[in-house]
């Protein structure tokens, strides 16, 4: 069965526009990803003209690289704490806003605002908040006689300070998703629970939480991936003489950036990127596994 002229015209139109998107994806995503794989097997210095093939040497060096180990540890710790507390606080805020309180939508906007502001101005603002001498935070804790802290410059506090900022920034987005999930739970479930004499806590544990599991899983995975890709706040907050100590806040993408664009070792940085890719891939596979097991995915 042949296509009519109109159908052919429509198909040409569709293929033309799809091919543009495909080409863009090819050049902006696919080729750089393949190039990263390729570069990871070379000693690819940005400046030197000779770029010898080194096999798996970059990966072997990674295993012995203390900075890489610190970066893996810091990133994992960052991801664990940020994801846990972001989800917890987001759920609490969503539960509070779901009660249809007066001005609830205003609060929703306020909580959501940080997610629409670019990370650079947010990080700079928090750098001022954390300023040891003139920062708002030290002023506030001073009101209750807590000594001033070097929130960013004290290596014991710096990673935690960036975690706090990230949690604050992400609550809004997660809260909105939880809110959607909460509003999707049919009211008759709660009515049935009420008829059965279930208290608020029991209702929450037996109805709300189980029905939020698909959303929670989705948010856990997405937040974990985001947390492993953390870079901007770390970069902004470690810049300059008043910045955080780099080793205390060394995360994977920061380490990749430093190797690639500070030391110009693109081959080594590519190997590191590949490891990050595998970590994220593993998390994504885990997500699909859990979803399938719970029957969320067909």
């Amino acid at each position: 069965m042949g296509y009519s002229n109109l159908q052919k015209k429509k198909l040409r139109f569709v293929f033309f526009w799809i091919s543009i998107i495909f080409l863009l994806y090819l050049f902006l995503r696919f080729i750089p990803i393949i190039s990263t794989f390729y570069l990871s097997f070379f000693r690819w210095d940005l400046i030197r003209p000779v770029k010898p093939f080194v096999g798996f040497n970059n990966f072997i060096r990674l295993l012995q690289d203390e900075n890489f180990k610190i970066a893996i540890w810091n990133t994992s710790l960052f991801a664990f704490i940020v994801v846990t507390f972001t989800l917890l606080f987001s759920l609490l805020v969503a539960l509070a806003l779901e009660r249809k309180i007066a001005g609830g939508s205003v609060f929703e906007i306020i909580f959501f605002l940080p997610i629409v502001i670019p990370l650079v101005p947010i990080s700079l603002t928090w750098k001022w908040i954390y300023d040891p001498t003139n920062g708002v935070l030290n002023y506030l804790i001073g009101l209750v006689d807590i000594p001033k802290q070097g929130w960013l410059i004290n290596p014991r506090l710096s990673l935690g300070s960036i975690m706090a900022m990230t949690i604050w920034q992400r609550i809004g987005y997660n809260m909105i998703i939880f809110l959607v999930g909460l509003r999707e739970i049919p009211a008759q479930f709660y009515e049935a629970a009420k008829v059965d004499g279930a208290g608020k806590w029991q209702t929450f544990i037996s109805i709300t939480l189980p029905l939020l599991i698909p959303i929670t899983l989705y948010l856990t995975v997405m937040n974990t991936i985001e947390a492993f890709r953390i870079f901007t706040p770390v970069y902004v907050m470690t810049t300059g003489a008043q910045g955080a100590p780099a080793s205390a806040v060394r995360v994977l993408v920061m380490d990749i950036y430093q190797n690639a664009f500070r030391y110009f070792n693109l081959g080594y940085a590519s190997a590191e990127s590949l490891v990050l890719f595998l970590i994220i891939l593993l998390i994504s596979l885990l997500q699909f596994g859990v979803f399938r097991k719970r029957g969320v995915l067909a």
Binding site: D131, P132, T133, K148, Q149, G150, I153, N154, Q242
Partner: peptide, 11 residues
């Protein structure tokens, strides 16, 4: 000197 105060030229 300490980690709890501002540093360098700004200080």
């Amino acid at each position: 000197d300490s980690f709890e105060i501002k540093h360098d030229s700004d200080a």
